[in-house]
Amino acid sequence: MNRVFLFLPLAIFIVMGVYFALGLREDPSSIPSRMIDRPLPVFDLPGIAEGEPGFSNADLDGQVALVNVFGSWCPPCEIEHPMLMQISRSGRVPIFGVDWRDEPGAGAAWLARNGNPYQRVGDDPEGDLAFELGITGAPETFLIDRQGRVRFHHVGVIDETVWRDTLLPMIEALEVE
């Protein structure tokens, strides 16, 4: 009986080892989103430049759409940008932008330089909407269904793989829902 107990530390070590090994595969920077299956909060953001239209819930009405949180200060957004342009050109799904924590005019200048993939862009200089959405960094993207609910929350850059393997199939499913 005592001999069996001698193996207890080894057994505990193995269990913990497996647990930690699985933990290493997880991305610690992605925390579970609170937004899934919840409606977007009510918002009405001003435009990012004089005379530019803003972005509010009404703009999304009834369509499956992507809402992308970005900033001109954010290097990964620069990396993501060509992919958003490509999606926008394909006309597959409308993309709406939330310009997060930008200096006045910086977001508009950035879009003028790099191209504008967004139907509408709202200015969120104080991060009020970003806070309501539980944003932890830029870029982050929400997939919105016809009822204005968040169905998917992507943290980080949308690349070809994310678009093809994750977003596009979900969009197709939502459109026939």
Partner: peptide, 23 residues
């Protein structure tokens, strides 16, 4: 602090932590 994760927003000087303190 949701970007620095091991720090509280009291310790962090990240921009997002400053926003959260403000809220």
């Amino acid at each position: 602090c949701v970007v620095c994760q091991s720090q509280s927003i009291d310790e962090s000087n990240a921009a997002l932590a400053a926003d959260m303190r403000d809220k």
